[in-house]
Simulated assay, not measured.
Amino acid sequence: MKKILSFGILLLSINFYSQELTCADFKVGNFVVKMDSEKNPYKLIRYENYQIEIVNKSTNENIKYTNNLEWIDECTYRLKYDEIKMTLNAFQKSINENGVLVKMKKIKGKYLYFDSFLSYEGKKIKLSGKMYKE
Rank of each mutant, 00 (worst) to 15 (best):
G109V: 03
T59A: 08
T76H: 01
G109H: 02
I107S: 02
Y81F: 15
L69K: 11
K103D: 00
T76S: 07
L118S: 09
K103W: 00
T59R: 10
K108S: 13
G122Y: 07
E61S: 01
I84L: 12
K85A: 14
K106V: 05
T59L: 10
Y113S: 05
E61P: 00
V102N: 02
C75T: 12
N68L: 15
M86R: 11
I84G: 03
K108M: 08
T87M: 08
E61V: 04
Y120D: 08
T76F: 01
S119A: 10
R78N: 13
N67Y: 11
N89L: 10
L69T: 09
G109F: 01
S119G: 05
W71C: 07
T76E: 00
L79V: 10
S94M: 09
V100C: 06
M104V: 03
C75W: 09
Y111R: 08
N96P: 08
G99Y: 03
E70D: 14
A90L: 13
T66G: 05
Q92I: 08
M104Y: 11
N62E: 11
E74D: 14
I72G: 04
I95K: 08
T87S: 12
S94F: 00
I107D: 01
N68G: 03
S119C: 06
Y113Q: 05
G109E: 02
K106W: 04
Y113E: 03
I107V: 05
F117W: 00
M104A: 09
Y111S: 05
I107H: 03
T66K: 14
K106D: 07
N60G: 03
Y120T: 10
T59I: 09
F117P: 00
E70N: 15
L79N: 12
C75G: 07
K80L: 12
L118G: 01
V102H: 04
L69H: 08
G109N: 06
R78H: 04
E70H: 12
I95E: 03
K103Y: 01
K103I: 08
S58P: 00
I95V: 15
F117V: 06
K105L: 11
K93I: 13
